[in-house]
Simulated assay, not measured.
Amino acid sequence: MSQQVPSPALAPSWQKRFNFFSTYGLPNSSPEAKAAYKSLSFMDKMQLNSNILAFLFGPIYFFVKGMWRKGLTLFGIAVAVMVVLTVLNVSDGLARGAGIGVSLIAMSSANYAYYLHVVYRSESWNLFEGLAKRR
């Protein structure tokens, strides 16, 4: 994949995320990345790793950002979880917990997925693309 330069039209918060990802990769990808991540403030760490809009809106967020393939994957995961829980007739509390779990997946994968989408023009269906620790 060839790396594209992030657009200056990106919001400053996205530029900070993209600069970190371009320089270090994911926070756990190397000793240098771990050290750089450790030096960030708590709010910067939260902003780098979390996306509250993705948590709240899930697949819709991915569609709006142009990552419709990943949005469909997330939607498929949510539907599959819902079907399994319905067939098993689980309690409402467990079903809500599973829903929160799917939202947490969206929240924690959205920022790096968007980075890959913008910088590398990723068209992958894999919601977890690049998130696995490489050795």
Rank of each mutant, 00 (worst) to 15 (best):
S2W: 04
Q4T: 15
V5C: 13
S7T: 12
S13R: 09
W14D: 03
W14T: 04
K16D: 11
S22K: 10
S22L: 10
S22T: 07
S22F: 02
T23M: 03
L26E: 00
E32N: 09
E32H: 12
K34F: 06
A36Q: 01
K38W: 02
S39R: 06
L40C: 05
L40V: 01
M46V: 10
S50L: 15
N51A: 09
N51Q: 04
N51P: 05
I60M: 05
F62Y: 14
G66D: 03
R69A: 08
K70A: 12
K70T: 07
G71K: 09
L74C: 05
G76I: 06
A80V: 11
A80P: 00
V81T: 09
M82W: 12
M82G: 14
V83H: 07
L85D: 12
V90A: 15
V90W: 13
S91H: 09
D92R: 14
G93D: 05
G93Y: 08
A98C: 05
A98V: 01
G99V: 07
V102W: 03
V102K: 00
L104E: 15
L104K: 07
A106D: 04
A110M: 01
A110S: 11
Y114T: 08
Y115W: 10
Y115L: 03
L116E: 02
V118I: 10
E123Y: 02
S124F: 00
L127T: 00
E129S: 01
G130E: 00
K133Y: 06
K133N: 12
R135L: 08
